[in-house]
Amino acid sequence: MHIQIIVGSIREGRKAKTVGDWAYQFSAKRENFSVELIDLKDWDLPMFDFSKPPIMGDYENPLQQQWADKIAQGDGYLFISPEYNHGYTPVLKNALDYIYGEWGHKPASFITYGGAGGARGIEQLRLVLIELNMVPLRESLHISNLWNKFKNGFFEGDKSDVKQLNKVLEAILWWGNALKEARKTL
């Protein structure tokens, strides 16, 4: 089982990368799955404007195909997304829209923060993931008091964050294994 942690913010001064690093370091210690950190800032996906809709699976751009190949390697996803104006980030929406089939029949969970603990952005994100044939999970980590959890420039989740991240990982693992078996019959 391979889980991809996707850092869904690219703006200057972002906190998503340090939160993603914390989640990756915590997750990489586990033995029952592999984990990979994918930073959307490293991918530099231009705004989607291709003539063919991704649902067709016929990717006309080499970068689009590279993104599809990378995402296809995942059995489950953990999205790091702050809340922007009651929503999730535009760069994450663009990355999701770039491809289609590679996301399908796989679980996704979330680490979020911001107004209302990031809940409003994740509500919107769940709707998009359903349209991509993903399984958005109930379990997620909503970080409270984010700014108070940085020490020497690094995010350090508290006991509650660690406990919830464990629940999130267990849910992704369970659903990821179940869906991996189910995908064999598709």
Rank of each mutant, 00 (worst) to 15 (best):
K93H: 10
G114C: 05
K167D: 11
F26P: 05
K149A: 01
S160T: 10
Y88G: 00
I122W: 06
K163L: 11
S9Y: 05
P62Y: 06
P62W: 03
I99Q: 12
S27C: 07
V162S: 13
D75F: 04
D39N: 13
T112Q: 08
W147R: 09
G153P: 00
F48R: 13
V7T: 12
F48W: 08
K159V: 04
K167S: 13
L129T: 14
Y88N: 05
V168Q: 01
S160M: 08
R120C: 09
W22T: 01
L40D: 02
F79D: 00
S140D: 11
G104Q: 15
F155V: 00
E131D: 15
I111L: 09
I122T: 04
I38F: 09
D161A: 01
F50L: 15
F150Q: 01
H86R: 15
H2S: 10
F26M: 06
Y77S: 06
D58L: 14
P90M: 02
D39Q: 08
E12P: 11
I71T: 11
P53Q: 13
S160V: 11
I111V: 13
T18F: 06
A116W: 09
Q66F: 04
H2G: 00
L141T: 10
K149C: 03
P54T: 07
K184P: 07
T112Y: 06
P82H: 05
A68E: 11
N61W: 11
Q73I: 01
A95V: 05
K29N: 08
A68Q: 11
N94P: 08
K159M: 03
H142M: 09
N85F: 06
L173S: 15
T185W: 14
Q25H: 14
V7S: 04
N145Q: 09
Y98M: 11
K52G: 09
G157I: 01
I71K: 08
N94D: 13
L165D: 00
L169D: 04
G87N: 10
K70V: 12
Y59H: 14
W43D: 04
Y98K: 10
F154N: 01
A108F: 08
R183V: 09
N94E: 05
K15E: 07
S51I: 02
G176W: 01
E102T: 11
N94T: 10
L169R: 07
P107H: 10
R183I: 07
L137T: 13
V7E: 00
I71V: 14
Q4K: 12
S109T: 05
G74W: 01
T89K: 00
L125H: 05
W22F: 14
W67N: 02
D21H: 12
I80M: 03
R183C: 09
H105K: 11
D42R: 06
Y77R: 03
T185K: 10
L127A: 12
V91Y: 02
G8C: 00
S109D: 08
A116T: 12
I143T: 07
Y24H: 14
E181Y: 08
L186S: 12
G13N: 11
P82Y: 02
I55P: 06
